[in-house]
């Protein structure tokens, strides 16, 4: 289960203000220690990687744990998993020095913010029941395809296509409803590709002090949309989905 990627270099987890994070005690990727490389008030959270480095599943958790520890102390601009620079010098000059304005601006933008990952997933059976009950074509095609069995291939295809279309429409409605419900309580949203039976999979950037109200509002819409939809909320997380330095739309 391990990938091999032979490299040597400096693995970067993220960037913080140097004086706000003295150290990180969590274990780093590749069982390396986690250190801080400073330049002009900014610090990159790094691990020096050995020559032979094979990515393991636990390295994914390590990366996140390092970010979470830093995030517990201060504002962090996270790097994507797997960012490796050639040397300390590269980190200090190419990253911290040359991109200082961007980094300062990102830190500023992310001060006091947390990320919540929200997934609204359909109860497959409950949803399909609703779609069958609400649509006579679906009910009819279902009966026909069951009756025809093996010979009902075209009916099944047509049925499936119809259901897929209805599901797309339903998904769009529900996603819109959820996002509008909480949009005034969040600063930004990044939408991911939902799964086949998901209405929404998104990350919300929320002011820490708005967290309770965001949660209340989300709970309210979840209560309205149950039992067909069930929600999972993960967080507060370091703002990995919002680390890009482009301005929010």
């Amino acid at each position: 289960m391990a990938a091999s990627a032979t490299m040597t270099g400096v693995y970067v987890y993220g960037v913080v203000r140097a004086d706000e994070l003295p150290a990180v005690s969590a274990d780093g990727v590749g069982d390396s220690a986690v250190e801080l490389l400073e330049r002009d008030g900014l610090a990159a959270i790094v691990s020096r990687l050995p020559g032979e480095f094979r990515v393991k599943r636990r390295d994914l958790n390590r990366h996140l744990q390092v970010l979470e520890e830093a995030f517990g102390e201060t504002t962090v601009v996270p790097c994507a998993f797997g960012t490796v620079l050639a040397s300390d010098a590269d980190v200090e000059t190419a990253l911290l020095s040359e991109r200082r304005p961007e980094l300062e601006s990102a830190l500023s933008r992310l001060d006091g913010m947390v990320q919540l990952n929200v997934r609204a997933a359909y109860d497959q059976e409950a949803l399909l029941h609703e779609l069958v009950a609400g649509n006579t074509d679906v009910a009819r095609l279902r009966d026909e395809s069951i009756r025809l069995g093996d010979a009902g291939y075209h009916q099944r295809l047509r049925l499936g296509e119809l259901v897929a279309g209805l599901l797309d429409g339903r998904r769009a409605e529900d996603a819109e409803r959820i996002i509008s419900a909480v949009s005034r309580l969040s600063e930004d949203v990044a939408v991911d590709d939902p799964g086949e039976y998901d209405a929404l999979k998104a990350s919300f950037l929320v002011k820490r002090k708005q967290l309770d109200r965001f949660d209340e509002r989300l709970e309210k819409v979840a209560r309205e949309l149950q039992p067909v939809l069930r929600f999972e909320v993960i967080g507060p997380l370091p703002p990995t989905a919002f680390a890009g330095t482009a301005a929010a739309p």
């Binding site: 990938a3 990627a5 490299m7 270099g9 970067v12 993220g14 960037v15 480095f53 990515v55 994914l60 990366h63 996140l64 970010l67 601009v77 996270p78 790097c79 994507a80 998993f81 797997g82 960012t83 490796v84 620079l85 050639a86 590269d90 190419a94 990253l95 990102a106 990952n117 991911d192 999979k201 990350s203 993960i234 997380l237 990995t240 989905a241 680390a243 890009g244 330095t245």
Partner: peptide, 18 residues
């Protein structure tokens, strides 16, 4: 979902791929 392809983009020396 949290860490893959999410985060600051750097012209990195090498990117570990999962």
């Amino acid at each position: 979902d949290v860490i893959l392809d999410k985060g600051l983009v750097i012209d990195a020396y090498v990117r570990v791929s999962v």
